[in-house]
Structures are given as structure tokens and as C-alpha cells.
Amino acid sequence: MDNHKMIPDSARKSNICMALFGVCLLLLGVMFIHASIQRRTGNAGTEHMAGLVKNLELTDLCLFTEARYTRNLSQADLHSAFQDHPSSLEHFPAGSVTGPPAGIRRINVKLD
């Protein structure tokens, strides 16, 4: 282990590794700071959309426009996929990333 004394400190692998470790931690820190700054500056856009939602009385995000019941998920018929029965097979790709709105189903069990 004394051999290391012959090698300059800067060339030791452990030093390079620790430096990289520091860089990674720094980048992770920068990531959190960037997210925080973006959240503050991005609020204007979100507020603008919230304003539009209030003004137009919108109920849903415009994420899946392929079918009427995927466009307004919260307003869809209870059993919209194939209109047959709850959780029936979905033929639109959006059905693979969205489930039947559980909240709506729950409240309607109580209300209907």
C-alpha cells in the first residue's frame, strides 16, 4: 500500500472516483434546484390554464382525444368501454394507460 506514496494524489483512482461522486451529488442537487425554480416560474402557465378551466367550466385535461369517453374521462359513461360492463375490454390504446375512473364508480354506487 506504500506504493501509493509514489503516485501523485491527483492520479489516484480513488481521488478520481471521489471527484465523480461529488459531481454526481452536485448534479442531483442542481436537479432539485432546477425543479424548484421551474416550479415557481411555471406556475404562471398553470394558473393560466386553471383560469381557462374556471372560465370555460372545463372538467378534464385534453390528453386522450381519440374517443369521446377518453377525452373527458371524468364525464364518461360509467361503463364506456364497449358500453357493456365495468372494466370490459378496451379497444382504444388510451385504455391501456387509463383505468375506469374508480372515484366516479365509488360515488355512483352510493348515489344511484
Partner: peptide, 24 residues
């Protein structure tokens, strides 16, 4: 009639993007 309250609309998107759900 069927009333849908705001909380349910928001929860719908919670379930859409829920960690547990979806092909991803």
C-alpha cells in the same frame, strides 16, 4: 341524474397517472 363532484374529477387523473396503473 348522476352528480360528479370536483374531487372525483381530480381523483380520476390521480388514478390515470397512478403508479400502480397502466401498461408502462
Amino acid at each position: 341524474t348522476r352528480p360528479v363532484i370536483r374531487d372525483e374529477m381530480i381523483r380520476t387523473y390521480d388514478s390515470v397517472f397512478d403508479w400502480r396503473g397502466g401498461i408502462l
